[in-house]
Design a binder for these strands. Structure first.
Lengths: 180, 180
DNA sequence: CCCCTATGTTACCGGTCGGTAACATTTTAG
DNA sequence: CTAAAATGTTACCGACCGGTAACATAGGGG
């Protein structure tokens, strides 16, 4: 979906359907034959991002079966890599949240459900890893993750990903020492 | 500035100048006699928010002179209070960042400079408090702060502020124990 | 009182946007 | 090759938006 790049770069509301069609190497009419409205286009774009991320989680789970610490650590490293590649315009989902204030917008529901699933997964991993306060650890991780985008664009931080890795590793090691 | 409420609730781009005038109990014409364009209106609104926050920092500094730990702890507590009061629509500045993709927008510069100042202040406090790795601590705090808004709206977390307080307190106490 | 300034009213401009109709063109399949 | 399906083109609609012009009204200070 080429429209996504435009949405991300210029903001959802800052991109017209005509420009989207052009970016997709087609025209407005054919676009409207596939998508009923700009809103479903937005929603479908969001759905794609979400699907991709969920796929990533499945992969993570497959590669570290029964190893919650490993999953957490690998997750933090993958996230750090993505953060390193990110530049200036922050998280697509985060921005979409800001740009779609209508609480009933379908894209908003898709995003919210995804974020909730993601957070619950982190909680589950922290529990499985035997962290003393799994809810707190998970919330800390999620806050750092969410804050990372903002910090990258607004504050211009560069080692955000590394910090996340650092904290996750620290929690894991601390827990190992504790249970040893 | 009544316009601010509208900006925050419906998004900057989702609010017309006419609606702003109405909310300010006046009309478009008089509004344009005070502000040359919608963009300067936006910028002035942002400037107001930023000024208010800087004021808060000055107050913080005045109330805990020469006590960086106290400043950090009080800062986390005030932030937590604000987060508790916040609902659904996240941070005004964060959203504005998402809604103003033009890197040359004056409001963007105002926000960026503010966020940088804020972060530098936290770094300075961490240094003054004698934290072993002040850059890391400050980045962690900032990431949590920035992430808090996102977590409140997307993930629906409720104890975000308390977590920030918790982590700041933990760092302070750890450091006291270390230097004792 | 009168003048000057601030504010309100209305109507309008040009532009953009989401979305559609009608028709021409190309591609595909049988 | 031909029919049908998909895609492209153009022009348009109504709505809204940011911003302005012209003019009416109010109000306050001398």
């Amino acid at each position: 979906m080429a429209a996504g790049d435009l949405f991300h770069k210029h903001g959802i509301r800052g991109v017209g359907v005509e420009a989207i069609a052009e970016a997709a190497q087609t025209n407005k009419m054919t676009l409207y034959r596939y998508f009923d409205s700009k809103d479903v286009l937005i929603t479908e774009w969001v759905r794609g991002i979400v699907a991709h991320k969920e796929e990533d989680w499945k992969d993570l789970n497959a590669k570290h079966r029964g190893d919650p610490e490993g999953q957490l650590q690998d997750w933090s490293r993958r996230t750090a890599a993505k953060l390193r590649a990110m530049e200036e315009r922050g998280s697509a989902l985060g921005n979409a949240f800001a740009e779609l204030p209508d609480p009933n917008h379908p894209a908003r529901r898709v995003m919210k459900e995804h974020k909730l699933r993601e957070h619950k997964r982190v909680v589950r991993l922290c529990k499985a890893a035997g962290f003393p306060d799994p809810a707190f650890s998970a919330n800390l991780f999620t806050m750092m993750l969410e804050g990372a985008h903002s910090c990258g664009t607004c504050v211009g931080m560069r080692q955000i990903g590394e910090h996340l890795v650092q904290v996750v590793d620290l929690m894991v090691e601390n827990n190992r020492r504790r249970t040893a």
